[in-house]
């Protein structure tokens, strides 16, 4: 047992740096994919066929692509176009691009839970598409979106570990680092599992809070 805690205390800076980077990656990609995914979701339910087609193509292209490939594309292929982005921003972009496809589908299915009569009544009052979506449909869709959205974000939190393979020192990079120091892998990996469990607790609490807050009587 002493050995178990020693691994953490002897290497606390490595663990701390790793998880702080994981949290940074997560927060940036969460905000990014929430914005981009909602925009894509709005496109998919818009009355303009070109926008709907763009949204559908994006989702089908990205959702069917392995995340590692999206990372590889940004880290290795994009610099060939003479665009130089650092590893960390590249990882943020890769996660955002990938997660947005899933967020888009969550938004779209949330919108589909709202009775069509709601949007129709809003249109009949003379509201624009943007007003119908932001004033009437999305507020009522939020509640249905919370559980699947949290699943997407929890998956995304764990997907951040792929960034380790692309020179970003986040939690997923800790095992390799510790192997060099000769620390027991079993213990290192156990601490990383515990770290992720701790990170996920606030997300679960947030989900419960939002579901209560956005309860809508139908």
């Amino acid at each position: 047992m002493g050995e178990f805690f020693r691994v953490l205390t002897d290497n606390q800076q490595v663990f701390l740096d790793g998880f702080v980077n994981t949290i940074k990656l997560f927060l940036i990609a969460a905000v990014g994919s929430l914005v981009l995914g909602t925009l894509l979701g709005a496109m998919r339910v818009s009355p303009v066929p070109a926008l709907r087609a763009f949204g559908a193509t994006y989702v089908n292209l990205i959702r069917n692509t392995p995340l590692t490939l999206v990372f590889a594309f940004l880290v290795f292929a994009v610099p060939k176009l003479d665009v130089n982005i650092d590893y960390f921003p590249s990882a943020c972009i890769a996660l955002t691009v990938y997660t947005s496809a899933f967020v888009c589908e969550v938004v779209r299915s949330g919108v589909n839970t709202v009775a069509t009569g709601q949007a129709e009544a809003a249109r009949a009052l003379g509201m624009t598409f943007g007003q119908v979506l932001t004033l009437i449909v999305l507020p009522q869709a939020l509640r249905a979106m919370v559980p699947p959205m949290m699943s997407v974000f929890i998956a995304m939190l764990k997907n951040t570990t792929i960034a380790a393979g692309f020179s970003v020192l986040e939690a997923g990079a800790i095992p390799a680092y510790m192997a060099e120091r000769g620390e027991p892998q079993m213990v290192v990996l156990s601490w990383i599992v515990i770290g992720f469990l701790i990170l996920i607790i606030p997300l679960v609490l947030l989900q419960r809070f939002l579901e209560r807050k956005w309860a809508v009587a139908r």
Binding site: A115, G117, Q118, E120, A121, A122, A124, Q140, V216, R218
Partner: peptide
Amino acid sequence: MVFQSFNLFAH
């Protein structure tokens, strides 16, 4: 416009 199913904004 007035609808058969009222369509009042539920929220």
